[in-house]
């Protein structure tokens, strides 16, 4: 049995292609994955499924709420939620806010799979080690 199998991963990005393939890749690695292309849907999924790890894009102009507000609402549901933020290198203020809200880590676009693997592995260790 794959040791990732029991972990749930929520992917939030307003670019459907990013959500789709991130889900597919990590599903193959044993995660149970969920995807949302807007923050409201992401919070609903979080409330219902309680994923151990959430990967949230900060800048989502096509979402009703941005990534910071999504993070804030997720942290209200579970203050210990393990959230990784995806950002632009130019989003200094948003990064500061995310850090203040308790985000675990930040990665910047353009992303490669190796970038994601690194932060998700770190999050997984944090979840598994408490």
């Amino acid at each position: 049995m794959d040791k990732n199998q029991s972990l749930k991963l929520l992917v939030v990005d307003d670019e459907p292609g990013i959500v789709d393939f991130t889900e597919k890749i990590y599903a193959r690695r044993g995660f149970v994955t969920f995807g949302a292309t807007d923050g409201i849907a992401a919070v609903e999924i979080f409330q219902k499924e309680r994923p151990e790890i959430s990967l949230i894009d900060i800048h989502m102009p096509y979402s009703l709420i941005d990534g910071i507000e999504t993070l804030r609402r997720i942290k209200q549901i579970n203050p210990n939620a393990c959230c990784i933020m995806i950002t632009r290198i130019t989003d200094n203020e948003a990064v500061r806010q995310a850090k203040a809200l308790g985000a675990l880590r930040y990665v910047t676009k353009p992303l490669e799979l190796a970038d994601l693997d690194k932060v998700i592995e770190e999050a997984k260790e944090k979840v598994q080690n408490g």
Binding site: F21, T22, T108, K109
Partner: peptide, 22 residues
């Protein structure tokens, strides 16, 4: 210029990368 690049190009390059990786 950086902001536009990392916003628009960042999303598109990420989507290309992840779909190819898959």
């Amino acid at each position: 210029v950086w902001d536009l690049m990392y916003h628009r190009i960042g999303d598109a390059l990420t989507a290309i990368n992840l779909s190819c990786e898959y």
